[in-house]
Amino acid sequence: MTDRKLYLGPLTDNRRWDMVNIRRDDVIVVTPPKCGTTWMQTIVALLLSGDPDVETELSVRMPWVDIRFREMSEVAERLEAMTHRRSMKSHTPMDGLPLADRGQYICVFRHPLDAHFSYRSHIRNIPITFFDGWYPEDDTDGITFRRFLDGGPEGFDGDAMPLAHIVRHYKAASAVADRPNVSLFHYADMTRDLAGTFARVAALLGVDHPPHVMAQLVQAATFDNMRANATRFAPSGGKGFMRSDTDFFQSGSSGKWIGTLSEEDLSAYDYLMEGYLSDEERAWLEYGDAG
């Protein structure tokens, strides 16, 4: 752990990765929350199985290592016992993960404002009260967006997912993107070209399926199909963890802040982004390849 940043909050602890023995063919999906994590995990599960009807069971078969809700010894034992090709999930930035030459690290990003508004809805859908002060249900004073702008990238703040944490994720992934086993994807590109996303991920994983099978896998991962089968695709779906599995897939759309944030809000966001990133970096983080 000495060569990695510490990310320790009420929800996550990246020291848990010290108990994971990363294998040559592991797949690790690394994202800020609500940036396409479950979507990319589903794509990986479909490609590794070649079965459009595969039961993904993400929370068990492709566990979120960072989360503190399960004893890490149990998670590590379960991972070590797996004989199939493994995949895991992390909401820790790349500078807090053990970066091995083996395994594939797939990093997914989304427009920070889209991720923020999606996280607002997600907080209302899960039985966790840690962040009620940041995300009050009746936010007449605009506390939520202020905390999004002024929160730090680590500790309690990091788990509440402010802008600084999203940018830290992006910078940490970009810093190692020249490695052959680190790849960056964008939610907007996945939305525009899901079949192309499947082809790119398949190449990274070294898997190949006939065109008719690939078409079935792509169809299984469409937003409409995942939402219609939320019990199957949502993390811990059907187990009562979330108030609504269907609401986990709220809409999958972009631009929810338009007409909601004030000009003052947007100016404050622009000011921070100009300080955080170059124009080119910002364009990609917000809009992907089309940026």
Rank of each mutant, 00 (worst) to 15 (best):
E55G: 07
P180L: 14
E57F: 09
L11F: 07
R146C: 08
E274S: 11
H91Q: 04
P210H: 10
I143L: 06
M19C: 15
C107Q: 00
R120M: 15
G206H: 00
I28Q: 03
P33K: 08
L97V: 04
Q216M: 13
T129K: 15
L46P: 12
L48K: 06
Y119N: 10
I67Y: 14
D208M: 09
S262G: 03
D51F: 02
G142I: 09
K5R: 13
G155L: 08
D139P: 00
D159H: 02
M1L: 15
A283D: 14
H84Y: 13
V213M: 09
F198Y: 00
S183M: 14
S87N: 00
E154Y: 12
D247S: 02
Q219L: 09
P180G: 13
W39R: 03
Q250Y: 15
P153N: 06
M242A: 10
R16H: 02
R147E: 12
T246F: 00
Q250R: 15
D139H: 02
W134N: 08
G133R: 10
T92F: 03
E71I: 09
W257P: 07
W134V: 10
F130L: 08
S118N: 06
N229H: 13
K89M: 03
D141A: 13
F223A: 00
W284T: 09
F185L: 14
N14F: 01
R282L: 12
P180N: 14
V27Q: 01
G240E: 04
Y287K: 15
D247C: 00
F248R: 05
F249I: 00
R86Q: 08
D26A: 04
G50K: 11
G206C: 05
T38V: 01
S254N: 12
P180S: 12
G151E: 06
R179K: 12
F241A: 04
L149D: 01
H209L: 02
M88D: 03
C35T: 10
G9I: 09
L99T: 14
H91N: 05
G259A: 10
D13H: 05
A76F: 06
A215D: 11
P52Y: 01
Q41I: 05
K34S: 11
I22W: 12
M161Q: 13
P136G: 08
P32N: 08
R243A: 10
R86W: 06
P162W: 04
V75H: 09
C35I: 05
L47Y: 04
K171A: 08
T260P: 06
L205V: 03
T56P: 15
S49Q: 03
S59G: 13
T260V: 15
M72K: 08
E274N: 12
K5S: 12
V218P: 07
L113A: 12
G9L: 12
L163F: 00
R227K: 12
P136K: 05
E137G: 11
D26C: 04
I126D: 08
A228G: 11
H212M: 14
S254M: 13
A220L: 07
P127K: 03
A220M: 06
H91E: 02
L285N: 07
A199Y: 00
E57P: 06
V65R: 04
R24S: 10
M273T: 06
T129E: 15
L113V: 13
G288P: 04
V30F: 06
V75E: 07
